[in-house]
Design a binder for these strands. Structure first.
Lengths: 292, 292
DNA sequence: CGCACCTCATCAGCTCTGCTTATCGAGTGT
DNA sequence: ACACTCGATAAGCAGAGCTGATGAGGTGCG
């Protein structure tokens, strides 16, 4: 069997690629420039292809390819280590719960214990990684799915998921919008509208492609960060439409939340954790999963 | 940052766990028993927990955990290497197409070129791995999905997928079965029936849990291997029911193929490949994806 | 135009990792 | 009780992999 690509080399490679400099990478990693140079040379020899063009330092086609692999790979590696270590050493720190902003529906918020929990609001796609690497003990991820279908999570590691809530999905319209009086809308009727694309605050438009027959939505304005308030304010000001779970969409001044009737999708929230839960985590998990 | 777990050690660990013996593992890996012992000791020290109980050799709880991670991890590692190497060295061998048995519907078979392709029939869940590691150039995977939903594939590596066919799903009933005259059946009416579980030949019952409201099906008889003929023969003999895509289910003597009306699932086939396609592969892929 | 400078490649030397061989200790079957 | 098997441990040695010094190529500026 061939030598299974040393992760050290891989780590150096991604660092060099990120910083576009051997010397800089050496400084960051605590090596000498010479060592970094040898690392890259070793990788290139091992794979039989140049990975970086020098002067300026930039990945080649093969290098780009490797970069796509390296990230998830190192993540998984770290996740594996964290997972096993977690088995041995019980956590001294308080319970950390990672959640995306829209996952924090009223049911969830009500079920949180009054103290002893650190809540960490993260972009949606960082949550599985946070849980896998032990940065968080529990995760709450949300997303769009067909009713009673599980979410599609990136599998950085074998994680356990548990559905905790499903709510209707609404389009947040300024109350002056022509469709604002309707009882429900079909997304197909809104493909030409101006949409706000807020992948970390609202629901990602990208998730809808499959459900909408392959057609995506044109994002008019892109919002970064996890602040739902900013998003709803923009929607109220008429900068564009956005998708939100009903609890988050109702009661925003100047707007109306109209349920989406077609395609049939729901906003689903899942609890995610790695392996067996410790005492405190188990208690919180149970509170969150209690069907009311 | 902590040392990212040497894959060599990981590989020895899984080998030891598999063979339940240090000495055997040493023989298989071409090391001395001493080296293997040191490998395991190093891993255990690195992770701060015993991974194996000696005498008899068996994984501890933490070790079980590590095993779950190690397989996918080493697979990804190999996939990454293969993917990058593939970029540099164009394949000399002929085109290899990996497919599950039920993925080979009539449309697919018709579109295959008359020569120059090696067809490799594999269990469904080995196909992504085969494509990722370069064992195959193209893959055809199939499974159950909601209409126009993509399949859920284990992501061993970033693969490109392309839907090539969707067909109705049928239950294969012996023609003496009480429901055999019906135009369609709901799976909910058949939860108590005897089912044949043939994860590699037919469609896996496990895929249905979500669609069927969390309830699985009791497998009466389990069939291993990829032989559809054996499966249909068993169904005809009344040993149990099985799910098949319509083309595979029709025309089996002594049986009737009744379409499934509820839940709304289809048999979907997807073409999967890693990265840009070479000349021969591109031609085959195009033939397979041509909408007729 | 040429000189200083910056960046990566290469080389020599050293260290310490990681293998082997050899030996021991503990459990097992006869 | 003795021989045998299997894993742990010790000692020794070769080479992997780091450092520091130097070389080579490219760029900016006086």
């Amino acid at each position: 069997m061939l030598s299974p690509m040393d992760p050290h080399l891989l780590r150096t490679y991604v660092t060099v690629a990120r910083l576009a400099s051997f010397s800089e990478a050496a400084r960051e990693l605590g090596y000498t420039q010479s060592a970094v140079s040898q690392h890259i040379a070793a990788l290139e020899q091992d794979l039989g292809a140049p990975l970086l063009s020098r002067r300026p330092v930039a990945p080649t086609a093969a290098g780009e390819r490797l970069l796509e692999h390296a990230g998830p790979l190192l993540l998984r590696l770290e996740a594996a280590r964290a997972d096993v270590v977690r088995m041995a050493a019980a956590p001294a720190h308080g319970l950390i719960l990672a959640a995306s902003s829209t996952a924090l529906g009223p049911r969830i918020l009500a079920a949180l214990p009054a103290s002893g929990v650190t809540l960490r609001v993260l972009p949606r796609d960082e949550i599985p990684a946070a849980v896998a690497t032990g940065t968080a003990d529990l995760g709450l991820v949300d997303g769009l799915a067909a009713p009673s279908d599980p979410l599609r999570l990136p599998d950085v590691a074998p994680l356990t998921t548990y559905g905790v809530a499903e709510e209707p999905v609404c389009v947040l319209l300024p109350d002056t919008h022509p469709l604002a009086r309707r009882p429900g809308v079909r997304l197909g009727d809104l493909t030409d509208a101006r949409w706000l694309d807020a992948p970390d605050a609202g629901l990602p438009l990208a998730h809808l492609r499959a459900a909408n027959g392959g057609h995506g939505f044109r994002p008019a304005l892109r919002i970064e960060g996890t602040d739902v308030r900013a998003l709803t304010a923009l929607a109220a000001a008429g900068h564009g439409l956005t998708l939100l779970p009903r609890p988050a969409a109702t009661g925003v001044p100047g707007t109306v939340a109209v349920p989406v009737t077609e395609p049939r999708v729901v906003h689903r929230t899942e609890l995610v954790y790695a392996g067996p839960l410790g005492g405190a985590a188990a208690a919180v998990a149970e509170a969150l999963t209690e069907r009311t």
